[in-house]
Simulated scan of single mutants.
Amino acid sequence: MTNDLRARRLALLKEHFASEVAQEFDRTIATFADSPRYEIMPTGQVHDGEDQVIAYHRAQRTAFPDQRHENVRFHVADDDSIIAEFDLLGTNKGEFAGGAPTGKAFRVPTIAVFFFDGERLVNERVYLDSASMLRQIGRMDLLG
């Protein structure tokens, strides 16, 4: 990978993260090469295509309107991927998984693996400790 391609990919990821926090999902979609795809590994959910990805983001921001990332660190792989390590934070202020908001906040360490085609994203694969998040927001009922 050239230094120029590396720099363009990192700039794109910074735009991707900023657009998610700003809840400007058209900007988020624009960071993808063609059809956006998110894979949420702890739940097995796959959001494929613009409509599904936007619906996913809207549901997340309904439940956690202040969802954001802190302490973002990027690890550039030699292939077509970049790993982002960060703290994911938010406060449950809206309906989540069919339950009323608890008003409680969460902070969980998260890893997202971003896959590229050239300088554009093709997939985001997210790994996080969802059990810890559910405990923090007071939704132990979802753990089964």
Rank of each mutant, 00 (worst) to 15 (best):
N123R: 15
A11W: 04
A59N: 10
D78C: 04
E15Q: 13
D26S: 10
T28R: 03
Q52D: 15
L10A: 07
F86D: 01
G98N: 09
E119V: 10
A7I: 07
S130F: 13
L13G: 01
Q60T: 11
A59D: 11
L88H: 12
S19E: 03
G94D: 00
P109W: 09
E24T: 13
E85G: 01
V21P: 03
R61C: 09
N123I: 05
R58Q: 13
D26F: 05
L10P: 02
Y38K: 06
F114V: 11
D34C: 10
K104C: 04
I111P: 05
L134K: 06
L12T: 12
A33H: 12
V108N: 05
N71S: 10
R61M: 14
H75Q: 07
H47A: 12
V53E: 08
P101K: 15
E95I: 10
A33E: 06
R139F: 03
F25H: 04
P36S: 08
E50I: 12
D78F: 08
A7D: 14
P101I: 14
S130D: 14
V21C: 06
L128A: 09
V21R: 10
L121W: 00
N92W: 00
R120N: 03
F106M: 08
G94Q: 06
E70V: 06
F106L: 05
F115G: 06
T91P: 02
Q45D: 13
D79C: 09
D80Q: 12
G99Q: 15
R6M: 12
R73N: 10
Y38M: 07
R125K: 15
Q23P: 01
R68Q: 05
D4Q: 11
G49Q: 03
A7Y: 06
L10I: 11
S132L: 13
F86C: 02
P65M: 05
M133S: 08
I40L: 15
E24V: 11
S35P: 07
D79W: 07
F114G: 00
L5K: 05
D48M: 00
Q136G: 02
D4M: 09
T31Y: 07
Q52T: 01
F116D: 00
R68D: 01
F115M: 08
F17I: 09
Q52F: 07
G103S: 11
T110D: 10
A84P: 03
D80Y: 00
S132D: 13
S35N: 14
E24N: 12
Y56C: 06
T102M: 09
A59C: 04
G49C: 03
D66K: 10
R107Y: 01
R6C: 04
R37T: 09
